[in-house]
Amino acid sequence: MREDRTADKAPGISRRKFITGTGVVIGGLAAGAGSLFSSCSPADVTRTITLATTKPQFICPYDGKAFDSFEELTAYIALEYPGLQPVDRYVSPYDGREFAALDEFRSYLDNLFSRAGFVRLNVNGTYHEVHVKAGWSLAFVLREKLGLTGTKTGCNRGSCGSCTVLVEGLAVCSCLMLAIEAENKSIVTIEGLSGSGALHPVQQAFVDNDASQCGYCVPGFIMAAVALLDRKPAASIDDIREALSGNLCICGNTKKMVQAVLACSQEADNE
């Protein structure tokens, strides 16, 4: 089930989510993550780090208010939103799995989060459960743990843009974002652009313009361009120059890349 079926209506509580079904109220369960993140590699578990959130919380689907127990939540809904249907289904905010009974739902989540060091990453529409260290960057996990090596790294300081991916639709240097920060956010990498087999229009424009020399920086440039055009389909050349200015091309090939992106912009006809 795709992440976009959920909606985060609880401002400031990023990892607590719920969904509403057709007239059905579903309580979401926050991560009771006493030992969620671990500083160990898959091969040799060494120790764990305790994070702040230690107990489950139940979120009201109508206003996002959080409660410590399910009973408190149902009492609150009965009081504040009389007439709405009672809760009859439970949906995991992490993978969309549905449960009819609260006990079953709880034990599923307990099991999920007792697996120390795992995060769930939604990459190119697929969920991956990945064993990570707290300090690992998203770029490192994408490349070394998920094998998505189309995302390149050139500096690990956010200054070359080679590792650009989309996170919730925005161009992000994946070397600057921790994998744990990216949990449950929608991530798109260069591999995700042409997942259906056909090239993305921006990729096709790079082909048409031969906008590459050594090619190492190209995935990052393409992701930055896609983020721009998703946000602003009629991007001007100045928009494009600005959007690509976080990416370095040491072969000096930016003229062709700017041309390629311009060819994808709805402004192209007016230029």
Binding site: K145, T149, F206, D210, G215
Partner: peptide, 25 residues
């Protein structure tokens, strides 16, 4: 004429040194 390897480049599938043996190094 296009570069013979341009499609591999725009899809991120041309392999550079560090793209080898992910997860084993």
């Amino acid at each position: 004429h296009h570069d013979k390897q341009i499609v591999d480049i725009v899809t991120g599938s041309l392999d550079y040194a560090a793209d080898n043996l992910p997860g084993k190094k």
